[in-house]
Simulated assay, not measured.
Amino acid sequence: MKRVDVVYSLIYDDIQERILMVKNIKHNNWSLPGGSVEPGETLLQAAVREAKEETGLNIEIDHILSVNEALMKNDNNHALFITFKARIISGAIAIQDTETISEVKWVNLQTAGEMMPYHKNGIRYLLDKSVPYEFQGVVH
């Protein structure tokens, strides 16, 4: 199996208590904005790039909320999913990557939890957690 790192950005509107989600064309499902980390790209760079491509928004990444792992037999991938908390710093919702994303919408926490059952303790639980992330630079 090929190892694949995937990053997601949980963009949370704490005033209206809702999460920004995207509809993926390939799998006909909803997820947080995100995707595979490209060679030479840091996790943070990938999360910012994917959010911009999928939502049109410029975001700032905070800390890690969760790490999930799955063996994807159909794709022959061993996937590591890293979810960051993020906030919007500028832009307006406008899908850039129309080949993979068909819709972007805000959903309440309960609905987001139902759309992402792999976070077994729910989205509210994730929002109360934090793991620091540091890029240590290029090490020789």
Rank of each mutant, 00 (worst) to 15 (best):
G56T: 06
V131Y: 12
E60K: 15
A47P: 00
L20I: 10
K129H: 10
L126V: 09
R49H: 01
V48R: 13
M1S: 14
V67E: 14
Y118W: 09
R18K: 12
A94K: 12
Y12D: 09
Y133S: 10
M1F: 08
I82N: 02
E54A: 01
N108Q: 02
E41C: 06
N77G: 09
V37L: 04
V6M: 04
A51I: 06
T98S: 11
V138R: 11
T98I: 15
Y118Q: 06
I123Y: 00
N76S: 11
N68E: 14
N68K: 14
L127T: 05
A47L: 03
V104W: 06
T83K: 00
D14W: 05
I82E: 03
K2W: 04
L32E: 01
K23F: 10
L44V: 12
V48S: 03
K26P: 11
V107L: 00
E53R: 10
H140N: 11
S36K: 13
D14A: 05
R18E: 02
Q110K: 13
I89T: 12
P117T: 04
V131F: 14
V104I: 05
V67K: 14
N74L: 13
E103A: 07
L32D: 02
H119F: 15
Y12P: 03
V131N: 12
K85T: 01
E114P: 07
D97V: 09
N58Y: 14
K105E: 07
L44I: 10
E99P: 11
A51N: 10
N68R: 15
K85I: 04
I123K: 02
N74C: 11
A70K: 15
V67W: 00
S9M: 03
E134Q: 14
N121A: 09
S102T: 03
S130K: 15
N28W: 06
H78V: 11
I88N: 01
I101E: 09
A79R: 15
F81N: 09
T111Y: 02
N24Y: 11
N24A: 11
K23C: 04
L126P: 07
P33H: 06
K129N: 13
N28Q: 13
G137D: 02
G40M: 00
L65T: 09
R124F: 07
E99K: 15
M21A: 01
I11N: 02
P39T: 04
